[in-house]
Amino acid sequence: MSGLTVSGLSHAYGPRKALDDVGFAVAPGRFCALLGPNGAGKSTLFALMTRLLVAGEGHIEIAGFDLSREPRKALARLGIVFQQTTLDLDLTVRQNLRYFAALHGLSGQDADRATDAALDRLDMTARADEKARALNGGHRRRTEIARALLHAPSVLLLDEPTVGLDAAARRAITDHVHDLAEEGITVLWATHLTDEVRPDDRLVILHRGRVIADGQAREIAGEAGLSDRFLHLTRAEA
């Protein structure tokens, strides 16, 4: 019920087809990695799932709500971390979160409570009153994840959230989001880095706008290991 389902999704920019009949389903509380080389269509898929674009064909269901029929209910259950930072750098961490809370209709004590809980969850309480500009890349990302969880969504989408981070921050954030899935949040994690995928994760490989593998990461990887397998798959298709 509270998972994420994409079915028959196609989208074209003029004559160029960016997504071609993409379909997969993520069960509630699962961590699903969406792996694909640059230009595979991940960003288009994210734009469609967040309703920044509307698909030509197909359906997206978030926590049981069809995005095209009940967009507001679906968006209310969706947490999003965009690839590029969307923090207002002149505002403090807390102000950024409060602004987001207001966009979700939370005010007063409700907003305070949600903000404090989100900060606490990502260990950002100590930095709550620092300006976003003063934070390093890892902490900015954490702030964005905290913000994405503020309205207690059941589905969390992250679009290459570790881009530009150092190894330690990358690991910390990857681990943390895996923990979130264990707490019951459905996670879709887009990446082009195979080392962010764990053997037990659900894995969807996207290439040239199509799903070319879908299953458990361990099984897809096989003997060769995920990195080689991924290279092989995307090269074979090329």
């Binding site: 920044l52 967009p71 999003i80 590029q84 930072t85 969307t86």
Partner: peptide, 18 residues
Amino acid sequence: EMGSMKLLLTSPLPRWWL
């Protein structure tokens, strides 16, 4: 370009209101 418009447009409130 900086992305904060994305934040606005993905809020569950109606777009015309935002």
